[in-house]
């Protein structure tokens, strides 16, 4: 067993365990912290797959910015744990059965039909580095990049408008 295989197996176990912990925690703060750990393990997978820039943005954008926003809203609303309410008693077993079917389909396609084939090819040395990624992003994909900035501006304005309190209100 090579070192990379051992690293992959351990981190895969950590990723699945933290995802399940996110799902089954009673307290939403614990869920958010489990999800941060999950995002960090996925960032290590990106490093293993030769995508260092994506890994760093995963840590800073997802594990940093997005999850801090989540924790802020959880603590702002005091929504750590809601009282359990089941209006649809058959929903939980049905959901579990459907997700088992979904996972079974994915496993069938991967390991029986073998849609992806075998081993990872060796990538070239500078593949996925910030330099090559930046060159492609700012030449071939310049227009989508600019549209992304407009999208972020719209999201920012939308968030302010949604939570803004009018002067005469209340």
């Amino acid at each position: 067993m090579t070192l990379e295989l051992a690293l992959f197996l351990i981190l895969a176990l950590v990723a699945i365990a933290t995802a399940l912990g996110m799902l089954f925690s009673r307290n939403a703060v614990y869920s958010a912290l489990f999800l941060v750990l999950n995002f960090v393990t996925v960032a290590v997978f990106y490093l293993l797959l030769g995508a260092p820039f994506i890994a760093m943005s995963q840590v800073s954008v997802y594990a940093g910015a997005i999850m801090v926003l989540f924790l802020f809203v959880i603590m702002l609303l005091g929504a750590e744990s809601l009282p359990p309410s089941q209006t649809l008693p058959w929903q939980r077993p049905l959901a579990i059965a459907l997700s088992v079917i979904l996972a079974g389909e994915a496993g069938y396609l991967l390991f029986v039909r073998k849609i992806t084939g075998g081993i990872v090819p060796q990538a070239i040395a500078t593949f996925g580095s910030p330099v090559t990624l930046g060159r492609t992003l700012f030449s071939k994909y310049l227009l989508p990049f600019e549209i992304t900035s407009v999208l972020l501006l719209v999201a920012m304005v939308g968030a302010i408008v949604l939570t803004h309190k009018e002067k005469g209100e209340r």
Binding site: A12, A15, I16, A19, L20, M22, L23, N38, F45, S99, L102, A103, A106, G107, L110
Partner: peptide, 8 residues
Amino acid sequence: LSAILFTI
């Protein structure tokens, strides 16, 4: 692995 995470 990603299929499992998506299912969860």
